[in-house]
C-alpha cells in the first residue's frame, strides 16, 4: 500500500491515526503463500497418482490383481480412518477443516474408493450387468462423506458421479464434448438431473443444511439444465416453441433468484442462455417466412440491435444489483 497516499488521507481527516499506523505497519506483516503452497501440493498429488496409475497399468502382470486391490483398498481405509479420527463430527453449518492434511486425505480416500470399485467391477464383474450399482454405491459414499466431513471438492465428485450414474457428463470442459445431444434420452436425463440439482441447492439454502453447498449444486444444475433445454429445443423441430416456453419460464425463475441473491454470475449465465434460445427462435422464424437476401439483412440487423439492447440491459442490472448489495 502507498504510505504517502494514506498519510495524505490522514491529514485530510479521512482516516484516524490508529488506522494510519496499521497501514504503515502492514509492510512488516507476514505475507501469505497459502495458495502457492496448496497449488504445489495439489500438483504433486496429481503427478503422484497419475504416475502410480501408469506404473500399475504397465506392471499389472507381475503385481497381480489381488495384491493391487488389497493395497488400494487398504490405502483408502487408511485415508478415511485419518479423517474419522480427526473429524469434529457432523454439523449442519460450515466446519473448518482441522488440518491441512485432512482435506487431501479425504480427497485421496474418495478417489481410491472410486478406483477400487471400478477395478473390482472391471476385473471380477462383481456387480454383473448391473453397471448402475457400480456407480450408485460410490455416489452414496461420496455424498455421505461430503456432508459428514464438509468438503466441497468431494461434493463436486459426488455430483459428477450422480450424473454419470444417470448417464451424462457434467464437468465444465466436457459437458458439451462428451454428451451425445442427438439422443433424446440423454437430453431428458440432463433436464431431470438439472432440476434435481437446482432443487438440492434450493433445499440447502431454505432448510439451512450446509447452506454453503448451495452454489456448487446450483452451478452444476443450472448449466446442465439450460444446455439440455437448448438441446431439446434444437432437437424437436416441430415443437421447438414449446421447449422455448419451458426454457423461458426457467430463465424467469433464475433471473428473479439472481436479483434476489445479488448474484452477478447467475444473472449473466441465465441471460446469455436465454439470448441463445431467443436468437434461435428469431432466426428460425425469419428463415421460415422468407429465406432470401432480405431475410439475411434482417437477421444481421437482429444480432446488432439485440446485442446492443442486451448490453444496455446488463449495464442496467449491474447498477440495480450494486445498489441492492450496497457495494
Amino acid at each position: 500500500m502507498n504510505i504517502s497516499l494514506f498519510t495524505k488521507l490522514f491529514q485530510d481527516g479521512l482516516i484516524t491515526g490508529d488506522e494510519l499506523n496499521k497501514v504503515s505497519s502492514q509492510k512488516d506483516q507476514p505475507v501469505s503463500v497459502h495458495y502457492e503452497l496448496r497449488t504445489l501440493l495439489y500438483l504433486g498429488i496429481v503427478l503422484l497418482t497419475t504416475a502410480i496409475g501408469i506404473l500399475v497399468y504397465k506392471n499389472i502382470d507381475t503385481i497381480g490383481h489381488t495384491a493391487l486391490l488389497t493395497v488400494i483398498g487398504a490405502a483408502s481405509v487408511l485415508c478415511f480412518g485419518h479423517c474419522i479420527k480427526h473429524s469434529k463430527g457432523y454439523s449442519n453449518t460450515k466446519m473448518e477443516s482441522p488440518d491441512v492434511w485432512f482435506d487431501y486425505a479425504l480427497l485421496l480416500g474418495c478417489l481410491l474408493l472410486l478406483t477400487f470399485i471400478g477395478y473390482i467391477q472391471f476385473q471380477y464383474n462383481v456387480f454383473g450387468n448391473r453397471w448402475g450399482l457400480a456407480l450408485f454405491i460410490p455416489m452414496v459414499v461420496l455424498f455421505y462423506a461430503a456432508y459428514y466431513f464438509d468438503h466441497l471438492g468431494v461434493l463436486s465428485l459426488a455430483i459428477t458421479n450422480l450424473a454419470a450414474w444417470a448417464g451424462i457428463t457434467v464437468t465444465p470442459l466436457r459437458i458439451l464434448k462428451e454428451n451425445d445431444f442427438s439422443n433424446a434420452t440423454i437430453m431428458y436425463t440432463g433436464f431431470a438431473v438439472g432440476l434435481l440439482l437446482v432443487a438440492a441447492s434450493y433445499m440447502s439454502r431454505s432448510k439451512n443444511i450446509k447452506a454453503h453447498f448451495e452454489f456448487t449444486y446450483k452451478n452444476f444444475g443450472a448449466h446442465i439444465l439450460f444446455i439440455s433445454l437448448l438441446a431439446l429445443m434444437f432437437y424437436y423441430d416441430n415443437i421447438y416453441f414449446v421447449w422455448f416456453l419451458v426454457l423461458a419460464a426457467i430463465v424467469f425463475l433464475f433471473f428473479k433468484d439472481a436479483l434476489k441473491e445479488n448474484s452477478f454470475y447467475f444473472l449473466v449465465i441465465t441471460l446469455l442462455y436465454a439470448y441463445i434460445a431467443l436468437s434461435y427462435v428469431v432466426v428460425r422464424f425469419l428463415t421460415d417466412i422468407r429465406f432470401d437476401t432480405g431475410g439475411v439483412y434482417i437477421i444481421f440487423l437482429y444480432f446488432i440491435i439485440s446485442g446492443i439492447v442486451l448490453i444496455r440491459l446488463f449495464i442496467y442490472y449491474n447498477k440495480i444489483i450494486k445498489q441492492n448489495a450496497g457495494i
Binding site: 496409475g53 472410486l114 477400487f116 471400478g118 467391477q121 472391471f122 453397471w131 448402475g132 456407480l135
Partner: peptide, 21 residues
Amino acid sequence: PQNTGLYGGGSGGGGGATGEF
C-alpha cells in the same frame, strides 16, 4: 448411451479401472 436401461455402461466405471484418475 445404449438404449437398454437408464445407464449405458462405460468401460471403466468409477474413477477409471487402471487407476489413472
